[in-house]
Computed example of a mutant assay.
Amino acid sequence: MSSSPSFGLLALAAVLLALNLAQHGSLAATVGPRVIVVGAGMSGISAAKRLSEAGITDLLILEATDHIGGRMHKTNGPATPVDMVVDYYKFDYEFAEPPRVTSLQNTVPLATFSDFGDDVYFVADQRGYEAVVYYLAGQYLKTDDKSGKIVDPRLQLNKVVREIKYSPGGVTVKTEDNSVYSADYVMVSASLGVLQSDLIQFKPKLPTWKVRAIYQFDMAVYTKIFLKFPRKFWPEGKGREFFLYASSRRGYYGVWQEFEKQYPDANVLLVTVTDEESRRIEQQSDEQTKAEIMQVLRKMFPGKDVPDATDILVPRWWSDRFYKGTFSNWPVGVNRYEYDQLRAPVGRVYFTGEHTSEHYNGYVHGAYLSGIDSAEILINCAQKKMCKYHVQGKYD
């Protein structure tokens, strides 16, 4: 018996549908919204993990660089100078900006130390701090059994997002290589500095209240400069891990740290600079920076034979278009109202990142927790139809 033309067309349609679903396995395997996550730093990976746990597994993570981990990176007015460096150690060394611009509302007491203790540890794991992010990603993204590398097609590296179009019906994301991706929602985990730059264009433009909130917070610059020497010339032993350089110039190579405990016989020193000094140093050569540092060290240890550093590493967070700074800081004048606006979604566009963490902004655990919080906001809308985000009044 021959089949009717209508039956043949239906069969053909069924075959085409099956082929289409086979090419988009995640769509076939799940029922639910499709979400694009912009950025594979701690907050983006954390948000995608929480979405996946909630059953939203049709994910696409677009990362601008060639690795996950975001800003994690590894590489094989006092009266006297003493008062100034102590003041710098208490404020700038923690918040990357001077106390004249740092709001006490989010810093006294500092929630991170109140909740987790006063101890500060330097990560000496050879795998780098980003191993934590890889561990989280490996809980929901497919990895190669032998190498442990992430091979899940839902993670796309070297995809620089340049445009996000959004409407009541969905979102479209365009990358620098002219690839276009469509979804129901987008989660933007780009840094505050990137949001303040013109790297990502939103169409239509973000509403005025959102833009104002983005620019009311600071993107600080915090630079750890590493130097390797042929031998040690600095004090060692218990209680001598840190030492300060007292200068009449605020923040001029003021806070030093040695790593004999973490890396025996490595002969490595770390000096931290922030804010204006960070920006100045990023614009000069490493050789110029090394010359300035050697001059400082020889003033600090006048009775020692201080050899020239054999190697120097100067991170450039501010100059990097994918970061535009190191971490966010709450300036004077902002409170919970601006914070709520900063992390509030705009239609189908959601926001996450350490800058959206109310208590732990500037820290990795802040990024991790903000990813979970922002994912919950999206989940409430996508699965429970609870899409209204409440922003309290400025003085409520």
Rank of each mutant, 00 (worst) to 15 (best):
V268T: 15
P99Y: 01
Q156M: 14
A48N: 12
T30D: 04
P5V: 00
E287I: 03
Y395V: 07
S319G: 02
V391L: 06
G366T: 13
H365N: 15
E354D: 14
D145S: 14
Q341L: 15
S2A: 07
L51R: 08
R279D: 11
A96G: 06
D340W: 06
S6V: 07
H73A: 12
Y395Q: 08
P264H: 09
Y89F: 14
D265N: 15
G366I: 10
R100P: 00
S179N: 14
N76T: 10
K203H: 07
L60K: 12
P109R: 02
G8C: 09
Q196W: 03
P307S: 07
M294Y: 04
P345W: 04
T107Y: 01
Q216T: 11
G8D: 08
G44W: 09
K290P: 01
A47Y: 02
N20P: 00
Y263P: 03
S285Y: 00
R240F: 08
R298V: 05
M72R: 13
I56M: 13
A111W: 05
A375C: 04
G55R: 02
A382R: 01
P302N: 08
G138R: 10
N361A: 15
Y363C: 09
L192Y: 01
F113P: 02
D218F: 12
A13P: 02
E354R: 12
D118W: 05
Q126N: 13
I61G: 03
Q196C: 05
D119K: 13
S52F: 09
G239F: 05
P345S: 07
A111C: 12
T57A: 12
G8Y: 00
V15D: 01
Q288P: 00
A11Y: 10
M219E: 12
E376D: 15
S374T: 11
G69K: 05
L244F: 11
T143S: 05
A291G: 02
V38N: 01
K146T: 13
P331G: 11
T326R: 04
E63N: 07
F91L: 00
K210Y: 03
F322Q: 09
K228G: 14
T272H: 02
F217P: 01
A54Q: 11
K388T: 13
